[in-house]
C-alpha cells in the first residue's frame, strides 16, 4: 500500500458548543485527486482546513511525511502554505488590492524570490490557465471563473505537493466550473500534485480518483485506493 502524503487520524474540532469534527480520519495519497463530499455543515471545510494546516485540530493528528502538522507552529505552517501546499476556496483567497499577476506571484514573493523571477513563473501559470489576458486586473475586475483560474494558478505556482480546494467551482456555472476543474486536474496530474477537493456537487466529485463522504463530523465512507492510481 502506498504511504499517504497527508494522513489525518481521529480529528476533533470544536467551535464553542458545535462539534465540527468528531474523530475524522482521512488519507490523501501522493498524486491522487480525492473528493470529499457530504451534506452542508458536516465538517468538510473544517477537515480540509485541518489537513492543510490552516486550523489546528483540538484532538487527533495530521501527519505530513514525518511531520505532525497539528503540532507545527504558526510559522512552519505558513511556510508550508507557500512551499508545499496550495489553497483554492470558493472565493476570498485572492488579495483584492493586488493584480492577478501579483496575486499569483505572491507565495514566491513572500518566500523571497526576486520580483522578476516570481512574475515570470506567475505569467507562465496564468497562461496555462488561460487568464494571461487578465494579468493586470484586480480580483474585483474579473469574472468569477477568471478569478478562480487565477486562484488555481496561485495554488500551482510553487509546484506544491498538495492543493486543497474547497468548493472551487461553488460560485460558477457548470461550464465555467468544468473549465476550472479540467485545468486543475490536468495541471495536478502533470506535476504529480495531490488534490483534496471538497465539493457537494457529484459532477465535480467525478473528476476525482476517489471519494470520501463526511457526515456529522466523521468520514463515513472512503473509497479504497485503486490498486494503481490510473493517470
Amino acid at each position: 500500500m502506498t504511504t499517504p502524503l497527508i494522513e489525518a487520524r481521529g480529528l476533533v474540532k470544536r467551535y464553542g458548543t458545535t462539534d465540527a469534527l468528531r474523530g475524522a480520519s482521512l488519507r490523501l495519497l501522493p498524486g491522487e485527486v480525492l473528493a470529499v463530499t457530504g451534506p452542508s455543515g458536516s465538517g468538510k471545510s473544517t477537515l480540509l482546513h485541518c489537513m492543510a494546516g490552516i486550523v489546528r485540530p483540538d484532538e487527533g493528528e495530521v501527519r505530513y511525511g514525518a511531520e505532525r502538522l497539528d503540532q507545527a507552529g504558526e510559522n512552519r505552517r505558513s511556510t508550508l502554505r507557500r512551499t508545499d501546499f496550495g489553497v483554492v476556496f470558493q472565493f476570498g483567497q485572492l488579495v483584492g488590492e493586488l493584480t492577478a499577476l501579483d496575486n499569483v506571484a505572491l507565495p514566491l514573493l513572500l518566500a523571497g524570490t526576486s520580483r522578476a523571477a516570481a512574475h515570470k513563473s506567475a505569467g507562465t501559470w496564468l497562461e496555462r490557465f488561460g487568464v494571461l489576458g487578465q494579468a493586470g486586473l484586480r480580483p474585483g475586475e474579473m469574472s468569477g471563473g477568471q478569478g478562480q483560474r487565477v486562484a488555481l494558478a496561485r495554488a500551482m505556482v510553487t509546484a506544491p505537493k498538495a492543493v486543497f480546494a474547497d468548493e472551487p467551482t461553488g460560485a460558477l456555472d457548470s461550464l465555467a466550473g468544468e473549465q476550472v476543474m479540467t485545468a486543475l486536474v490536468h495541471a495536478a496530474r502533470e506535476s504529480g500534485t495531490s488534490v483534496l477537493l471538497v465539493t457537494h456537487d457529484a459532477q465535480i466529485a467525478a473528476y476525482a480518483d476517489r471519494e470520501a463522504t463526511v457526515r456529522d463530523g466523521v468520514v463515513e465512507t472512503e473509497d479504497e485506493p485503486a490498486a494503481e492510481v490510473t493517470r
Binding site: 486536474v185 457529484a202 459532477q203 466529485a205 467525478a206 476525482a208 471519494e211 465512507t221 473509497d223
Partner: peptide, 17 residues
C-alpha cells in the same frame, strides 16, 4: 459508488485532450 464510478468514466472520456 456505482453511479460515481460511471460518472468518473464519463468524465475521463470528456476530459481527454
Amino acid at each position: 459508488a456505482a453511479h460515481l464510478a460511471r460518472m468518473r468514466e464519463l468524465t475521463a472520456v470528456k476530459t481527454v485532450a
